[in-house]
Nucleic acid binder design. Structure first.
Length: 493
RNA sequence: CGGGGUGUAGCGUAGCCCGGUAUCGCGCCACAUUUGGGAUGUGGAGGUCGUAGGUUCGAAUCCUGCCACCCCGACCA
């Protein structure tokens, strides 16, 4: 392994790829487009899962599990849904292998052709709604509030670790309601859950918004989203929540007896976030020295590195280190004590910086003598000596972790503000897009045609119509037609 | 699927034009000296040169097929 990471300023995507690999988050696998998520990377995902899962349960949802395979016929029941996913589905056509007659290995047994092919789920609306049909008969059965943690497959042409892989891990919530209003409220609620998760846990500021018709989920009436800005000025969709109207209920004949004695189709929602969040996390905060992790999601928040000559010194330092570790653990802080004798302190410093550990404690003979430790924070790379008599170490670290969590959020927020530009002319639009990058807040005439043309010309898309959009009369930056408010454009991942 | 590129030790590479049995760095193993920012020295292990075939006394090198990966385009969370 060579030492330096590529610089963000020189080659951002190379920096990203190298960082993911060197920080032990993930690597490419033997299967094209699929990744191996390594233990350190998976630990972060587990932290995300745990927190999101808690939030889903707090909002009344329960986990369940639906099959990986979907009968082909299901997919075609909702017209726009098929259209959206048909081009990227993996299909199972056979169920058996056999030895080749010429001894060259195994081949697909042509005798074992499936009568109906199975699709590897690209998303589960269809299997789930075919199941809901049986679960729901009356308004008394509603709402159904279910989430599942699963893997899905979308056969992408070009993949990138975490950001776009053929198989990815995610959660998909699927709910059914008696009224449109209730379903819409659920859609909004879950978008807010995602936004809160991104901001409070990932330290990632997001714009809450609504997708335009072009960018909407295939099969949804309305898609709400959270959009984040990465350090290279490109936007990343971090989570989506869909109001499905009665589309899937109609496609799968999910009707319920209303309180009033009528029969009506059920209203649905679906919402999801994926391992793509890992990519967002990495790109939002990390620097040329490596990963910068928010304390709330770091696999361990503190690492203790002993500095010593000889076994006796290590033994003495270990006693102190273990004492500190215990104190920290009692306070709910996760700590790793790295007493490996196989690597030197300097090597460990660089390693934990690469891996984004929020706080490092270095403990050496001088510290034992002076009753101090050396603290270093990952976000600012500041180092300072801390007198253990000053206050309990756990309290100090707790403060520090909170400060780091807050600081990286503020830093990302300031960056987004700086990179969000209001523009009023087409000339300005293209110039800002090319030179400054980031979000562009501009008037749009509300038509898909204009959106398409802008995309063709510049690769920029409408990321969202912000929910906090101010009513403001203006003219479309492209067509000159009247507009009632600004939307956010950007080049996106 | 179009256009370009690359496959050589665990990783990154030189050699290929001009054919003679593979270079260097990192990592790995052993020993010694080291340990407050990626240590140093000495010794060592590790290779079907992507794959199948062809040309040749001889192929990493030349020719042909195939495979894989990367980059750029059309599609996407």
């Amino acid at each position: 392994m060579s030492k330096g990471l590529p610089k963000r300023s020189e080659d951002y995507s190379l920096w990203y790829n190298e960082l993911v690999k060197r920080a032990d988050l993930a690597e490419n696998s033997a299967v094209r487009g699929c990744m191996v998520i390594k233990p350190y990377g998976y630990s972060i995902w587990e932290k995300m899962q745990a927190q999101l899962d808690t939030m889903f349960k707090e909002t009344g949802h329960t986990n369940a599990y639906f099959p990986l395979f979907i009968p082909k016929s299901f997919l075609s029941k909702e017209a726009s849904h098929v259209e959206g996913f048909a081009k990227e589905c993996a299909v199972v056509t056979h169920y058996r292998l056999k030895n080749a007659a010429d001894g060259s290995g195994v081949i697909v047994d042509p005798e074992a052709k499936l009568e109906e092919e199975l699709i590897v789920r690209p998303t589960s609306e269809t299997v789930i709604w075919s199941t809901y049909k049986n679960w729901i008969q009356s308004y008394r059965d509603l709402p159904v509030l279910v989430n599942q943690w699963a893997n899905v497959v979308r056969w992408e042409m070009r993949t990138r670790l975490f950001l776009r892989t053929t198989e990815f891990l995610w959660q998909e919530g699927h709910t059914a309601h008696a009224t449109a209003g209730e379903a819409m409220a659920e859609t909004e609620q879950m978008m807010q859950v995602y936004a809160r998760f991104a901001e409070e846990y990932m330290a990632l500021p997001v714009v809450r918004g609504k997708k335009t018709e072009n960018e909407r989920f295939a099969g949804a009436e309305e898609t709400l989203c959270i959009e984040a800005l990465m350090q290279d000025g490109k936007a990343l969709q971090a989570g989506t929540s869909h109001f499905l109207g009665q589309n899937f209920a109609k496609a799968f004949e999910v009707k319920f007896a209303t309180k009033e004695g009528g029969l009506d189709y059920v209203w649905g929602t679906s919402w999801g976030v994926s391992t793509r969040l890992m990519g967002a996390l990495i790109m939002a905060h990390s620097d040329d020295n490596g990963l910068v992790l928010p304390p709330k999601l770091a696999p361990f928040q503190v690492v203790i590195v002993p500095i010593y000559r000889g076994e006796e010194e290590l033994a003495m330092i270990s006693v102190k280190a273990k004492e500190l570790m215990l104190e920290l653990k009692k306070a709910g802080i996760s700590v790793k004590f790295d007493d490996r004798d196989t690597q030197k302190p300097g090597w460990k410093f660089a390693e934990y910086e690469l891996k984004g550990v929020p706080v490092r404690i270095a403990l050496g003979p001088r510290d034992l003598e002076n009753n101090t430790v050396e603290l270093a924070r990952r976000d600012t790379l500041e180092k300072f000596s801390f007198e253990l008599s000053e206050m309990p170490i756990a309290e100090k670290i707790k403060q520090l972790l909170e400060e780091i969590q807050n600081h990286i959020y503020q830093k990302a927020l300031a960056f987004r503000k700086e990179k969000t530009t209001e523009v009023n002319s087409w000339e300005e639009f293209t110039r800002v897009l090319e030179e400054k990058t980031g979000f562009i807040s501009a008037h749009w005439d509300g038509t898909s045609e204009t959106e398409e043309k802008i995309k063709d010309l510049t690769k920029a898309t409408i990321r969202c119509i912000p929910l906090d959009q101010k009513p403001e009369q203006g003219v479309c930056v492209f067509s000159g037609k009247p507009s009632a408010g600004r939307v956010l454009f950007a080049k996106a991942y």
